[in-house]
């Protein structure tokens, strides 16, 4: 009996190994959000552009928007930034930023230098209810499509590329716009 117990670490490891094997087949950036088909969590947050102006969920409704979680500290965000600019300027999709775990001054510099695709940026201050947490954000960047009724329709964890923009996001946005 005692001997069998000694096999426990091996059993746990094999189980973990199976998950890792499966994990290799799954693309982490395509990890589905539990929120898809669910309404966007309620929030009321100030914006980076104007700390006095609070935005809540109701302000987003009536249009299909891209909600992009980003931070100036995040190297991958630099990488996806050109695609976001393209989405906003070329395809005219409203992009809303959620500035995540960032310093506000650094975020402003980032937008100044890299260009600003965002209609506005939500910021989460200490002590305020965190939208990113409710959204299940694991890191940055992450991107969501929210439809006109405020329902999350799509989620991308990881870098948004031109290919993803054209093949996945654009058709989805157009689909929900109609």
């Amino acid at each position: 009996m005692k001997r069998l117990l000694l096999f426990l670490p091996l059993a746990i490891f094999i189980l973990m190994g199976a998950f890792f094997l499966r994990g290799l087949e799954l693309d982490p950036s395509a990890r589905e959000s539990a929120l898809i088909g669910q309404p966007l969590p309620d929030f009321r947050l100030p914006t980076l552009e104007n700390p006095q102006r609070y935005i809540s969920k109701a302000d987003l409704q009536g249009q299909v928007v891209l909600l992009n979680v980003w931070g100036s500290w995040c190297p991958s965000c630099y990488q996806e930034h050109p695609s976001l600019l393209k989405a906003a300027h070329e395809y005219q999709i409203p992009v809303i930023g959620l500035n995540y775990k960032d310093e506000e001054a650094a975020a402003k510099v980032y937008l100044q230098k890299q260009g600003n695709p965002y209609a506005f940026n939500l910021v989460e201050r200490e002590g305020e209810r965190k939208l990113a947490f409710d959204l299940g954000v694991y890191g940055a960047p992450e991107t969501f499509i929210v439809d006109a009724q405020g329902v999350v329709r799509y989620h991308l964890a990881g870098v948004l590329t031109d290919a993803i923009l054209q093949q996945e996001i654009l058709p989805k946005v157009r689909q929900w716009q109609n």
């Binding site: 982490p28 950036s29 500290w73 190297p75 990488q79 694991y138 890191g139 940055a140 964890a157």
Partner: peptide
């Protein structure tokens, strides 16, 4: 590449 990380 099984996890997304800021350390790319």
């Amino acid at each position: 590449g099984v996890l997304t990380s800021v350390h790319a």
